[in-house]
Simulated scan of single mutants.
Amino acid sequence: MQFTVFYDGGCPLCMTEMRHLMKRNTENKLAFVDINHPSFAVEYPELDSEACAARIHGRWSNGQMLTGLDVTYTAWRLVGKGWLYAPLRWPLIKPLADRLYIVFAKHRHRISYWLTGKERCDSGSCQINEKN
């Protein structure tokens, strides 16, 4: 079963993570969709673009949706590195991690600027060379 990650292609940190996931996606368990791509609304009319912009979304091929850190953990698990994010899903840590993720997601462009010097990807500055 394939898992599709709906990511913000305008976010430098998001793009960095997607590049790392794509590199490790050797068994094609993941598909990637940039929510900023002009065809997003046409190809995925059932998805709320504002909700997808507010936090990362993922969908199994059977239609089951995940959001937030559940998407991150699932994606990394599918490429064999789930152990990196597993602690964020542990029962005692999960509620706090989820709240912190919501803050991160809301301010991801500002945080990207602090960490990378770029607030947004534009003019292909963070472009992925693979088909999304």
Rank of each mutant, 00 (worst) to 15 (best):
E27V: 13
Q2F: 12
C121G: 10
I35A: 08
G58R: 03
I111G: 00
W90G: 05
F40W: 11
A41Q: 15
E43Y: 06
T26N: 04
K106G: 04
G63D: 07
R99F: 00
L78D: 06
G82W: 03
I111V: 09
V5K: 03
L78A: 10
G9Q: 03
H107V: 07
A53L: 09
S125P: 01
D70L: 11
F40G: 05
F104M: 13
T67K: 09
C126M: 08
R110M: 07
W60A: 15
K29P: 04
S125H: 04
S49L: 09
F104D: 11
L30A: 04
F32A: 01
T116S: 12
L78C: 14
R120C: 09
F6Q: 02
A41F: 04
Y113W: 13
P12I: 02
M22P: 03
D34L: 01
P45W: 11
C14E: 02
L13D: 08
I102C: 02
T72A: 04
R55A: 15
E17Y: 00
E50L: 10
K106V: 05
P91V: 06
E43M: 12
L88M: 15
N28D: 06
G80F: 05
P91R: 14
R59M: 14
I93Y: 00
A53W: 02
C11E: 04
K23Q: 12
A105L: 06
L96N: 02
E50Y: 03
P38R: 13
K81D: 12
V103K: 14
V71D: 08
H107S: 08
M65D: 14
N36K: 15
